[in-house]
Design a protein around this nucleic acid. Structure first.
Lengths: 226, 226
DNA sequence: GCATAAAAAATTAAGAATTTATTAAAGATT
DNA sequence: AATCTTTAATAAATTCTTAATTTTTTATGC
């Protein structure tokens, strides 16, 4: 399921009341209380915006942000009671989009969240589609010639990353960083997954038109091939 | 001209020093001191990001924001000494993207500005192009007279390095350092690759116009040869 | 200037090396 | 138990380098 907003804060009461307030005003929000829960959340669900506390019970919000950034481009707003300028600068440098000081006004925070949603909601591409292949990134559904195709979650992430960078050559290194989240498992693994993806979506897997091998460099997705 | 950032603030000293600070750190910035000047600015120039003070000598920043929003989608960050939550909410509701409290820390503001630029900054497409030869460095695609040309990854790296140093003579030593990453494999190897590149991209490989031999020194790429 | 020698670069084809594809099966996860 | 991911071994394809030869350029002496 796709939420508007995910809040990650180990202060449960605050997180819950903020979520409740947001939901009341039409921003579909869910709150979790640890980095662990956050990662679990992103396994099946997505959010258009993340509110992230820097101090988490099970780790630093900075570290979590870095990990999220490996796989998603979702806007991340840091929340923290820390007042140091250094913290703010670090937060923005590692990929955070904004920094909100605790204690915050619910009204101001909501306005800010809505502003971000307004801007990012529209630009976000949620689907790939041509006459032959359709990929819905929200529902994670892939269709070939109108028929549903079943992809594993890894295959779907791989395809998603390639489509997001349509036309651009992506190195194996980058794929391992972004799709496997730095867990390098050997080139053979990648070969196998590329093969399966091709079997799933290509008209003729032996003559791929979508997922092109760029010898010595990597792979690239070439869209609108039909 | 396209600037990274436009600052509108009637406190001239603050606006100027902020602009100076930004320019120092690579954010190409210009400061103006009134709504009038701002409108004049947008007649000929553009900016990727606007920092807008709410209190302007000749009018409200809110009003200016509304007017700007009529014609442009540029991210607008409000700056103000006002602390009221209502102001912040209004600012965000009328199309502002963020609200920065005065007095601000230059370091934090710069980090925030850079974060916004990173996200919204037009991602420039890296390409070489003249009437005859086109090279797209993202898709690693090379076109000659409109027809796709196939280069190996080493050939492409070699061509890229030469084009990056267009007009400059590159020694063989440098080529081995940069393209072969210090793995010296003998001058013959380089000869062969230059030959193949020429066969791929030159109108007449025996009379190269792009990849010029500089006797005793190396090679150079001469662009716009058509 | 011109012939000649020496050095640098170009050409060519072949095989060595590297990269990717394919398949099946073992290992993990849910 | 069923599904997904990784490993491993082999095959296939592509690319890179080598080396032998030829051509071009520069330098030298007459």
């Amino acid at each position: 399921m796709k939420y508007n907003c995910l809040i990650i804060d180990d202060e449960k009461v605050l997180a819950d009341s903020t979520a409740e307030y947001f939901n009341l005003f039409g921003v579909n929000t869910v709150a979790v209380y640890s980095a662990e829960e956050c990662k679990k959340f992103f396994k099946d669900d997505t959010a258009e915006l993340v509110l992230l506390d820097i101090n988490l019970g099970d780790g630093s919000g900075f570290e979590l942000c870095r990990q999220l950034r490996a796989t998603t481009d979702v806007p991340i707003l840091f929340i923290s009671a820390r007042t140091s300028d250094d913290d703010k600068i670090v937060a923005l440098n590692i990929g955070g989009d904004d920094y909100v000081q605790k204690p915050y006004s619910l009204g101001v925070l909501l306005a800010k969240v809505k502003a971000v949603l307004k801007r990012f909601g529209q630009t976000e591409v949620k689907k790939y589609s041509d006459g032959y292949l359709k990929v819905d990134f929200d529902s994670k559904q892939v269709t070939v010639k109108g028929g549903a195709v079943k992809l594993t979650s890894l295959e779907f992430r791989l395809l998603t990353y390639l489509i997001e960078n349509e036309g651009k050559v992506i190195s194996k290194k980058e794929l391992f960083e972004r799709v496997w989240e730095d867990k390098f498992t050997g080139d053979g693994t990648l070969n196998v997954h590329i093969r399966r993806l091709r079997e799933a979506i290509e008209i003729n897997p032996n003559e791929p038109k979508y997922i092109i091998t760029v010898w010595g460099d990597g792979y690239k997705f070439t869209g609108a091939c039909v």
